[in-house]
Design a protein around this nucleic acid. Structure first.
Lengths: 216, 216
DNA sequence: AAATTAATTCTTGTATACACGATTGTTGAA
DNA sequence: TTCAACAATCGTGTATACAAGAATTAATTT
């Protein structure tokens, strides 16, 4: 566990929310959480404050904390922004690419290839994250990298749903290949364009998302 | 003051940081803040937790909170992301524009015209904010609007410095005019391109920023 | 005099106590 | 039976108390 209980609780509760253990709309009772984790209310409250600031929960004065339910439309908006930020990261990566970043992207890309060809969607899910993180890092913009990583985390549950869709694995991987080519060729505009398309949710993929969200 | 002390303190301290009363690197002593605002340490700590989560301060375990010093390079990175998000907002606004948003943009734009022609840089500073907020709102993406507004707030002190630069007022206003034309014409790509240029810091404007930041 | 170590003070982290608004349940009247 | 008013209960908001680590100062040694 982390150096202080508050921070540890923040991560713990955040994971519980992102892994859908605490459902959207669910009330988070301070006392229940405190006894569950074997601590007092004080660090629990501090954790909740932080989660409120991040936007994962909402604390209504005197009425407790509830997990925020983004709803399909807002999730769509979040993907829209994510696509834009990843596009920027890709274009910067293409322009500023150095050897270390290039190697990191190539390595994660080939790991994606293996898990995709093996049809292992759980492994691909993980490797895919590493691939995208490698691109964020290659942008050489620490702020952008943080923003991307944070939004990426928040969208994690929905991305997981998406990978379940038929053929999504091989489609995703071939898109990755094109992105890698563009970045390695130093073509920032093309990398941006491809990443926008790769990350964003267009057309029927949006109805897939809505359907899978409604199914829970 | 807000309904609960913690939230009020968060806003209060946040403003003090953004208005440069609490300087980057400065230590924020819980007891000092508590006595200053006439409250106990508890709500102070909750406020600090939130500011840490937002990224305005850093709480080092057992060693207290300090105001984060972004430094010129990171501020540049933040403007880079801001430019991208505003570009997206502008392109969405152009595509989705309705009467209400159109009127709001036109109104704030004409207010900018007045303060610019009057050479009133303080008034322009305020009207400029409203103009940009009108574009965020016109994007009809609540999430994007929030992200833009938050980053806009954080960059406020640095934008204020920029407006002091010679001729910046009239230059800024004429850029606004072109942006409004593009949005009203429904030309999303052009609106995006213009906003990126308007918000981003290119060439000598970066050295101006560095110089003005170093001057403090 | 400089440096290292020990002791003291100060600040943060967590628990607990208390106050007050919100919620819920009960009683009584229409 | 339904609704309203009141009472009791429960949960959150804030203050205070206590424990423990970090910073600082004093003391001792080289």
């Amino acid at each position: 566990m982390s150096e202080n209980v508050g921070r540890w609780l923040r991560d713990e509760i955040e994971n519980s929310i992102l892994s859908n253990e605490f459902r959207p709309g669910e009330k988070l009772d301070e006392m229940v959480l405190a006894t569950r984790f074997g601590v007092s209310r004080t660090p629990v409250r501090e954790a909740l404050m932080q989660l409120d600031a991040i936007g994962l929960i909402e604390i209504r004065p005197r009425r407790g904390a509830v997990v925020i339910d983004p709803g399909p439309h807002r999730v769509y908006e979040m993907f829209e922004v994510m696509a834009e930020l990843e596009g920027l990261a890709g274009s910067l990566a293409a322009r500023r690419l150095d050897k270390a970043s290039r190697d990191a992207i190539a390595a994660t890309h080939s790991r994606c290839e293996q898990s995709a060809s093996a049809g292992d969607s759980d492994a691909y899910y993980y490797d895919n994250e590493e691939f995208h993180k490698a691109i964020y890092a290659a942008s050489r913009s620490a702020f952008l990298e943080e923003q991307c990583a944070q939004l990426h985390r928040r969208l994690r549950p929905y991305r997981r749903l998406q990978l379940r869709v038929r053929n999504r694995l091989s489609t995703s991987f071939s898109e990755h290949s094109a992105i890698v080519d563009a970045i390695f060729a130093g073509d920032g505009d093309e990398a941006r364009r491809l990443l926008r398309g790769h990350v964003g949710i267009q057309g029927e993929r949006f109805s897939d998302l809505v359907a899978s969200m409604a199914a829970r």
